[in-house]
Structure formats: structure tokens, C-alpha cells
Design a binder for these strands. Sequence first.
DNA 1: CAGTGTGAATTTCTTCACAGCG
DNA 2: CGCTGTGAAGAAATTCACACTG
Lengths: 220, 220
Amino acid sequence: MDPSISDATVGRLPAYLRAAIELAALSLPSVSSDRLAEEAGVHPATLRRDLASLEITGTRGVGYDLKYLVSQISLVLGLTQEWPVVIVGAGNLGKALANYGGFADRGFPVAAMVDIAPDLVGSEIGGVPVHPPSELGRLVEEEDILVGVITTPAAVAQEAADLLVGHGIRSLLNFTTEVLEVPNNVTCRSVDIATELQILSFYRQRGRAAKTGTGVPLQS
Amino acid sequence: MDPSISDATVGRLPAYLRAAIELAALSLPSVSSDRLAEEAGVHPATLRRDLASLEITGTRGVGYDLKYLVSQISLVLGLTQEWPVVIVGAGNLGKALANYGGFADRGFPVAAMVDIAPDLVGSEIGGVPVHPPSELGRLVEEEDILVGVITTPAAVAQEAADLLVGHGIRSLLNFTTEVLEVPNNVTCRSVDIATELQILSFYRQRGRAAKTGTGVPLQS
DNA sequence: CAGTGTGAATTTCTTCACAGCG
DNA sequence: CGCTGTGAAGAAATTCACACTG
């Protein structure tokens, strides 16, 4: 069912998808691996091997059909369905993300926010209502929420994670510096700005080009 | 001068640093590679090899001295100096980042913000003054700014990057979905939330555990 | 003939396993 | 004796290079 799509490949798929969408918007019917790889910033052979591993095939002498490419990559990434999101923590970052249109556009509508501050509860931010944590269970149920985004202060991030996991959420995106402990049927990715800045400073200092996009802590 | 510190190693250093700081805060004098690796979420042999490649040595039978560890990793990452930051784009995300204490705490003080909106210019956000783009040159000079953080709308992100690079900034952290073109003496890392969500949805859908923290697009 | 798909070579990264030091 | 440091094995990822096809 999942014949060996490597982690390295998965990490590149969003770049391929973005590049393909961009080129499709130019009304090009197809692309060569050379061109698409250029746009995505990878080696052409790597791109061909990645696509082959997804069983996405091109036409020899021509290239890959762009519409097909977009639909197949979307399929593999699971983007044919919507993934409603709840944002836990209505501080600055939470607000920024709620106002940020990019979520809904890409199939991750922000269905609700949760915060403990009584003065925020009941308000709306970017059209998204803020609820108290006690309502999380109901929200998850009613809004079919699949993803939890954690933008609380670091000190309570683990608490937020436990709450989300306790209500059946199995995908977490963590914006705090805290490393979260989660059961291993839960997928958690962390975006840590400090990590990014530190890596940036390493490469700057050494004058080396940053090759691969490692970054991002993570757990199962 | 830089005897082979691999990209994979660099990507793990921030996690080691964080773990070491955490353990040092518990007043432990030293740690074994087993313990530190556990905290950082890597294999103990990987940790030992990484540290050895930085010429950080432990004591056999004992472990690694925590103070030494923290200071040496900081040194390698270039965190012995401050890296003043300018945030370009005072929208929601820019504001959130300006208000976010974590920057300054970790040696990346937010020295200034830049925005084109006349009603924002002259105001302060989280104690950080907002300037018009025309003043960027002076700011970079006077505040010794080394890093540019791009939080503009995607459509003008390239423009922002050009502006920063034009004023001598050689480290960019890009929060837009746009892929930036930069000269190759400039280090640019991108944090793209859509990418993270898409990867999350892949692993969730397949029920596979997300192993390595690939993520993050990037260019030279 | 342009460009895919893929064996094979190569490089890089990880893990094992253990000699040897404090 | 516990734990580092590392040679060697193994696994994974990347890149080469070219046969082959539309």
C-alpha cells in the first residue's frame, strides 16, 4: 500500500507541488524534469527517481503532464480532503496564523481557536471564534478537526498537546520551543524559529552555502 | 578551518544545544551520550560522532561536561556574538514575531521593523520602532543588522529580499511561500507552514511515523 | 531526438561493536 | 567498570550515464 516512499522524498513533495502549480498557472501543458527540478531546487535525477517512486510517470521525449502531476502529488500528500485545524493559544502568533489566509487556501481551514483568557473567549479573530479549552471536545467532534496547532507559551505547550491528543487529535504542529511528548500514533512537527536562526548563523559565519533543508526538530 | 561538519550534523546542533542547556539548568555537571541523545531524540552513536566532528570531547567513564558542551556548541553555531535582526513586513506575523521574546533571548535582538504602510511607520510594536524602507540602509549601518526576516505578503517577498541584499544583508529568514532568488553568498532559509502541514497530512494519512525532520525548503 | 526511467557507481549518513581510557 | 571515540559495516540517498521510447 505504501511501497517505500522515503522520508527524503516526502520532504521534497511540497516543493514539487508548489513548482508544478506555478508552472501550470503559466498554461504550460508539461515540464521536463530538468525544468521542474530547477524550479524546485533539486537535481533532475532526484526528481525523476522521486516521481517514479510515487508511480508518477512522464512521457519520454516530452516530460511530465502538469495537471496530472499536480493531481497525483496532491493525492499522495492527502490533499484531496480538507484538514480542519484548531489553533490552541490566541496570543500574537495564534492571531497571526488565524489571520493568515494561507491555511484555508491550501486545504487547512482554521475551524476554531482555543484560549484560556476570559477576555478573548467569545471574540473572533480573523473570523475565527475563540473558545475555552473545555469546549475542545465538542469542537473536534462538530468541526471534524484533524490538526492541532500549538501557539501557547512554551510552559504550557505540553499541556496543550495532552489536551489535543486526549480529544483524539493525531496531528500536531508545534510552534513553541518545547519538545512535546506524544504517543507514537501521533505525528508532531515542530517549527522552531530559534533553530532556524541558529543554523542561519552557522552558515553565515562559515561562509558555507546551506545545502539541504534540515532544520525542524520532530518526533514520531 | 572547517574540517567537515556535515549538513546533517549542523541540523542537529540546535537540538543538542537546547538539551544541554536544559540539563545544565538542573545543575547536573555532565551527561552521558545516552542521556543527551535521548533528550535530543537521536541515536547515541550519532551524537558522539557529531560532537567528535566538532572536536568536542567528553571524559571516558563519565560523559560530557555540560558547561563546556553549551559553550562549545554555542561557539560553533556562532552564538557568541549578537545577531541583530530587522523584520520586514509589520503585518500580523511580523507583529507576532516582534512581540515574541524568544528572539532577543537567544541572541537575535529585533533592532527594527520596516513597512510601507504610512500609518504603521513611526509606531512601535513590542518596543520595536517601525521605519519606512527608505531608512533601511541607515538602520543596517547604525544597528549593525545582520539578519533580515521577511514577513511581507508573498507577492512582494522578492522585492523585500532584494532590498535587504542590496543593503548588504547576507542572512535571510523567509516566512512567505515565495521561493527567493538570492546571490549565493547569501544564506536563505524558509519556514513554510504549508509545507509543514502537507508533510503532516502525508504521515497522518499513511499512519507512518514521521522520522527525520526534513521539512523546510531552502536555497543556497 | 529530447527526455524518461533505472541499473550501477558514488557519496553521505547511520549504526554496530568494541578497544581503550579515566 | 562505565562511557567515549572510532574503525568498519550497513543503509540510505544522491548522482551518473545511458538504454530506450514516444
